[in-house]
Design a protein around this nucleic acid. Structure first.
Length: 803
RNA sequence: GCGGAUAUGGCGGAAUGGCAGACGCAGCAGACUCAAAAUCUGCCGGGGCGACCCGUGUGGGUUCAAGUCCCACUAUCCGCACCA
């Protein structure tokens, strides 16, 4: 028999599957459906990385299994192709991003094709295709018309050297990654999407879906819903109040100072009253150099400046307290001002200690001289006037009622979630379909004019003043107002990469539709996505943004479901051989092409699934790859022992049924490593038996087919099994046949294993116990001790407690 | 800082509270070979001649029984809103 040679086999079957339209998604909407989705890749210049095949293979296994189970399966693939790296590459090499993208996509597609995935390539989408982004723009217009897209002054990272806005990632330790110049925050008018309007539903509707728990937790934490109160503090000598948000209104009697963000408008408003204005402004300029992230870190050194000349009055006791400014208070959360309760908040405590501000205990239970006491479950109020003696929860309720009665505060739900900054001063993104007219303001372009295509430009560099490269295209920018017909200018910012990926799963259901983003029938049939797998790194933002858009489209009557994804799972990263993240600079990147060339695609697929627990990161091992190739070689050579009868019959039948059961359930639980281990064990058993029947082999081939589709299809054909393997029915196990005739029971004395006994699987309890007592070393111990207790766990263990 | 996760042989990892180390890699020994590779067979956590003893990051606890449950630590990794 010839040796297993994967290359021609894989090419042959990839071509056959394409010719036979084996994985073409049907449009018979009466058939039961299954929509499997993996995150579409960003087609980078580096080509495919061995991290990509992990999730793709996992859901390819599920998709292939579902087809064998009789489902109409949608398993699509596409390209999330707008983005910074392509644009930066284009700038550097003077190649149009369109061309760069086209080349990268071709490379990625070729590499993916070599891996034998069952994608329906007729449904390929590309976010940079005007026929695609036409609908991205259409969704934006809908949002705009509903008042969910608005302009606001937001800071950007501004490189003082390159004179361009930078992505957070391009800012390293406060300086520009490229030129090393300091980066400062510069305020710019930007498009925002009002995701906060959906904050409650984005949390509450998590009850409707089956996401792995840590994904739900990360969504909830990101949204960060908290309930507390807004409280007005009068400013001494003015009619004004300083409003703060607090989750601990119960600690109002413990307020010893207030802190406002360096950007707080009162600094300008009370410029004349502030005695040390210059010092305050100098501090603000210093703070502007730090990111929110750096600012909110619990740094050992808190910084801040007292605002002299401005004092606040605590509404509960009329005490006058100082107002400070510090960069740990962010303008972007709450009201940009806090009441400081150093006795019961860690950051306030640090600050008070550093600047010698008083600390008052108002909740008993800790030692506020040592540390802030923040436990809300056990504390009782002290030194708190009418709140003294109450539990924290009751005090919160009572003080909130009191504040509302007096008209100086009210309960308030707050979210950490902020509105979505939707503008980018970049070329390679979807143009925002808005024009600005001096008379009419911001005017949406008419829907029938979509797509608003990106004009070709020669230079993709942002302009010196921080505008998008599109701003330099005067022919394109100058237009007429769709409303009044007068002169108007186009919006020159583009959308972020998140835009295209927020709705791509909808387009797959009907990718060539020219009338709508997808037909009602297609959406009704295919939604929701049954199973969406992606990286943990996308489980907060991408998932949140696409859920937000979906909910909006649901409100608009465009989609029929409240949630886009019924089930969400996540995979771990593939690390380099040294256990570090794979990267060019570390020199530990493994290219899947090399593995396919040397061992074959089936080996790569098998290894990626065998490497470890799917949800955990795993280090690559070239030696481990060899082991998987060896396994496939052994499967191939099973052809030599096929005969009319099995070597041993009953035991092998039991093993086969156990394997069907385990592989079927392990695939569903994403436990591919143990499923493959079980198939390896079965192959070992086949060899031990010496001979197997065609049917035995057929069962193994079907089970292994989703993992290693080419080799199994080839053997299927060579054995003359009839038809195509991909079109076979998934096997069912017979529960009765999974039970072994005799079982081994461990025998323990005081929890220590002393030996095992073999008994019939239906042996009565006392028979098993008697057998256990007869074990020589057990009998010896029993002769010298008294039995206190004896436990028999059926089919597992006997534990005899003696003294 | 905030949020999430992880820790088991030389390595990747397995184990509904019930025989720790399945399966694979590496290693060792043997078979085949002039030889090597490949393949096949056996061994393979540590200590001890042995009966046995020790062993799942650390320290406590619950239980007849703990890698698994509880409490307190330690270390490492990932994300943090303009990377995707």
């Amino acid at each position: 028999m010839e040796m297993y040679n994967p290359k021609p086999i894989e090419k042959k079957w990839q071509k056959t599957w394409t010719d036979e339209k084996a994985f073409h998604t049907g449009t018979d909407y009466t058939k039961k459906k299954f929509y499997a989705l993996v995150e579409f890749p960003y087609p980078s210049g580096q080509g495919l990385h061995v991290g990509h095949p992990r999730p793709y293979t996992a859901l390819d296994i599920i998709a292939r299994k579902r087809r064998m189970q009789g489902y109409n399966v949608l398993y699509p693939m596409g390209w999330d192709a707008f983005g910074l790296p392509t644009e930066n590459y284009a700038i550097k090499n003077h190649i149009h991003p369109k061309i760069v993208t086209k080349n990268n996509v071709a490379r990625f597609k070729g590499q993916l094709s070599d891996l034998g995935y069952s994608f329906d390539w007729d449904r390929e989408v590309n976010t940079t295709d005007p026929e695609y982004y036409k609908w991205t723009q259409w969704i934006f217009l809908k949002l705009f018309k509903k008042g969910l897209a608005y302009k606001s002054e937001m800071p950007i990272n501004w490189c003082t050297g390159c004179k361009v806005g930078l992505a957070n990632e391009e800012v390293v330790n406060g300086v520009c990654e490229r030129c090393g110049s300091p980066v400062v925050r510069k305020v710019k008018s930007q498009w925002m999407l009002k995701i906060t309007a959906y904050a409650d539903r984005l949390i509450d509707d998590l009850d409707l879906v089956d996401y792995i728990e840590k994904v739900k937790v990360s969504q909830k934490n990101w949204i960060g819903r908290s309930t507390g109160a807004e409280v007005d503090f009068s400013i001494a000598g003015t009619d004004d109040v300083l409003t703060v948000y607090t989750t601990r209104p119960d600690t109002l009697f413990g307020v010893t100072y207030m802190v406002i963000s360096p950007e707080h408008p009162y600094i300008e408003k009370y410029k004349d009253k502030i005695e040390n204005y210059d010092e305050v402004i100098a501090y603000r300029e210093e703070a502007a150099k730090k990111s929110d992230f750096e600012r909110s870190e619990l740094a050992k050194d808190k910084t801040g400046v007292e605002i002299k000349g401005l004092r606040a009055i605590d509404p509960v006791n009329g005490k006058e307290i100082p107002i400070w400014t510090s960069d740990y208070v962010l303008m972007s959360y709450g009201t940009g001002a806090i009441m400081a309760v150093p006795g019961h908040d860690d950051r306030d405590w640090e600050f008070a200690k550093k600047f010698g501000l008083p600390i008052i205990e108002v909740v008993a239970g800790g030692n506020v001289e040592e540390a802030a006491f923040t436990d809300v479950a056990t504390g009782t109020l002290v030194n708190s006037g009418f709140l003294t003696g109450l539990e924290v929860a009751d005090a919160k309720k009572k003080i909130t009622e009191w504040l509302e009665e007096k008209g100086i505060g009210h309960s308030k739900t707050n979210f950490k979630l902020r509105d979505w900054v939707f503008s980018r001063q970049r070329y390679w993104g979807e143009p925002i379909p808005i024009v600005k007219c001096d008379k009419c303001g911001f005017v949406p372009i008419p829907e029938e004019e979509l797509p608003l295509t990106l004009p070709d430009v020669d230079s993709y560099m942002p302009t010196d003043n921080g505008e998008s490269p599109l701003a330099a295209m005067t022919d394109w920018v100058n237009t007429t107002c769709p409303c009044c017909g007068g002169p108007a200018k186009r919006e020159t910012d583009t959308m972020p990469q998140w835009a295209g990926s927020s709705w791509y799963y909808l387009r797959y259901t009907d990718p060539h539709n020219t009338e709508a983003l997808a037909s009602k029938e297609a959406l009704k049939y295919w939604l929701p996505v049954d199973w969406y797998n992606g990286g943990m790194e996308h489980t907060t933002l991408h998932l949140l943004y696409s859920r937000f858009w979906h909910k909006f489209l649901y409100d608009e009557g465009v989609v029929p479901t409240k949630e886009p994804y019924q089930k969400r799972t996540s995979h771990g990263m593939i690390l380099g051989e040294n256990g570090e993240k794979m990267s060019k600079s570390r020199g530990n990147v493994v290219n899947p092409d090399d593995i396919v060339n040397e061992f074959g695609a089936d080996t790569l697929r098998t290894y990626e699934m065998f490497i470890g627990a799917f949800e955990l990161s795993a280090a690559w091992s070239q030696e481990g790859v060899k082991g998987c190739r060896r396994f496939l070689d052994r499967v191939w050579k099973l052809q030599e022992i096929v005969s009319d009868a099995r070597g041993y019959s009953k035991e092998l039948e039991t093993k086969i049924h156990q394997t069907i059961k385990k592989v079927s359930s392990d695939f569903e639980a994403l436990k591919f490593n143990t499923a493959i281990a079980a198939m390896m064990t079965l192959v070992n058993e086949f060899y031990k038996a010496g001979s197997i029947t065609k049917d035995d082999f057929a069962t193994l081939l079907i089970l292994l087919n989703p993992v290693a589709p080419h080799i199994t299809e080839e053997i299927w054909e060579k054995l003359g099994m009839g038809g195509r393997l991909y079109a076979q029915k998934w096997p069912e196990h017979d529960e009765a046949k999974t039970v072994e005739d005799t079982i081994e029971i461990a025998v323990q004395i005081n929890g220590k294993v002393k030996g095992t006994v073999k008994v019939a699987n239906d042996a009565a309890d006392d028979v098993v116990k008697a057998a256990a007592h007869e074990l020589p070393n057990v009998a010896a111990i029993l002769a010298e001790h008294t039995v206190v207790k004896e436990i028999y766990v059926k089919g597992r263990i006997v534990n005899i407690v003696v003294k």
